[in-house]
């Protein structure tokens, strides 16, 4: 069931290729704007700023990419799903799909970012792992907030207002862990941060799994 739903998301996405292209372009132009406005290459940009800036770019891209997950669904189609599938499988499929999408986006973003701004990352594997955990966490938080925001009026601005404060704890740990990976510290030093990330992800997913059925009913 979940698999079919993911497949359906994929087909829908493929039919509206312009949307995903738009997101990629959004990512690329944001990176470029950052590059132009700092007007500097690596070495002049502080590694801390390099890292924080990258996460801010990813955050904004994620909000834009995931915002459409529920906002794009028309009323009639939602009713149709409602009669067909269980809400739990619906939210799980959405979360998995958008985690994948976001992971793809953040890797693309990372490559482009490293291409123009230089790449100071030393422990690339761990950085990728943090990126992976980050995409999952961001997408699961944003999927539920987008579901919440889609029920209210003026939803697109509400989306940012609702999700940003919730994401801050996750983002703080992400920035800290990725900074450690960037500096190439010994991996045992920040395993507890990675564990915290996993735990936060699990917490958020657990809550969205529990809460979504109530949202679905209305």
């Amino acid at each position: 069931m979940i698999f079919t739903l993911i497949q359906k998301e994929f087909i829908l996405e493929w039919r509206q290729r312009y949307a995903i292209n738009g997101i990629i372009l959004y990512l690329a132009s944001t990176v470029f704007i950052c590059y132009m406005s700092f007007n500097l290459k690596l070495g002049l940009v502080d590694p801390i700023i390099w890292n924080a800036l990258f996460w801010v770019i990813i955050l904004f891209t994620a909000v834009n990419a995931v915002a459409k997950s529920f906002l794009q669904e028309s009323y009639g189609r939602t009713l149709y799903y409602f009669s067909l599938v269980k809400p739990e499988s619906f939210i799980i499929s959405k979360t998995i799909y958008y985690s994948g999408l976001l992971l793809l986006m953040s890797i693309l973003g990372f490559l482009f970012y490293a291409f123009v701004m230089g790449n100071p990352v030393q422990d690339k594997f761990m950085y990728l792992l943090v990126l992976c955990l980050g995409s999952i966490g961001l997408s699961s938080t944003l999927t539920l907030t987008s579901a919440i925001a889609s029920k209210a009026s003026n939803s697109s601005s509400l989306m940012a207002v609702l999700s940003f404060p919730i994401i801050i704890p996750l983002l703080l740990v992400l920035i800290k862990a990725s900074k450690n990976a960037m500096d190439g510290l010994d991996r045992s030093v920040y395993t507890d941060q990675l564990l915290t990330l996993v735990a936060i992800n699990a917490l958020i997913m657990g809550f969205s799994y529990l809460l979504f059925p109530y949202l679905w009913r209305s």
Binding site: D192, A199, L210
Partner: peptide, 18 residues
Amino acid sequence: KKVLTLLALFFCLNMVSG
């Protein structure tokens, strides 16, 4: 069961050293 799972998760988070 769900509540217990969440509680367990919460305690996992608490393991981080003070």
